[in-house]
Amino acid sequence: MQTWQKLLLVAVLSTILFVSSALVYFHHFVKRRLIISTTTSLYDTGLLDIIEKNYEASHNVDVNIISVGTGMAIQHAQNGDADVILVHSPSMEQTFLEQGYGENRKIFAYNFFTIVGPTADPAGISGRPVKEALHCIVNYGRNLTDQSGQTKIWVSRSDNSGTHLKEQALWQAAGYNYTSVSTEPWFACVGSGMGDTLNVANQKSAYTLSDLGSYLTFRRGNAASLSALITEEQELLNVYSVMAVRSSVSGNQSVHEQVNYEDAMSFIKYLVSPETQQMITDYGKETCGQSLFFGAVQPLTTNSPHPVVDWIKSYAFFDGSECPPQYRNGYPELYP
């Protein structure tokens, strides 16, 4: 046998050894893993770090959080690469449930999107309803002297995230075709996470749509000249839900049988427990001076405060329920 053949044999053997020892290690010596695919807006605020820490302290499981957009989180779930997903796009969630990839949806938090922009507010949107505000921004953008594309008035995430979907819906509601408005010279598409998008908006002195949590966290870390100009409107409501990835998906059995369903459900129960809900509502009060998120479980059971609960129901309920019975699987305590 020649040297290179021997070396190649050694290489193949060591690769096999490496992979198999990794397999043995991860399957037998490490705690069970719970992979949570989450939308960036929850992750970047640091809220999940605390939830993870608390959960791991009381449960014998290793929580691994992957931060992606809502679109990718759902893709992960379909591919069987995540056990739990945390997302904020009711329309996508409904499709996801209908396709049979997930179940036991719970709405666990809400907050409001906010339109942020330069404190000087050159388009004069402050205090206006969202539709009007978007009109102002478009008019301001179209009447700019500089139409070369250097000056940007609006920054869009354009990454198919929940925030991006929300933005598209808002343009639609205001009577604009998103596809055509997004090609106008004053309209910037970033294709990245909320932090990056806020950075760009800050640099360009432009307006953008942000979830409140990301904006407040961003403002804390950066000497930002961006202000939240419009907030707390029905159109700007942002609802976060959690779903377990189904471990038996027809026609896709082998992909999903490794899904850690039990720990997923245990995590969901933990997330909607009163203690965690309180923790969510309190998060950020110290560092940002206000709540970044509000626990949604108690408002939905007690039907207060008004009108937020009605907004949530009309925005994020399917067939009058956060999780219609056909998408439930056991755990009746979750749906009193």
């Binding site: 490496f18 992979v19 397999l23 991860f26 992957i66 591919n79 069987g80 992909v255």
Partner: peptide, 17 residues
């Protein structure tokens, strides 16, 4: 490496390996 990919059965996605 995705669970639905050809090497998904190894379960190596999102591991140091």
């Amino acid at each position: 490496f995705s669970k639905s990919g050809p090497l998904g059965f190894l379960g190596l996605l999102y591991t140091p390996a």
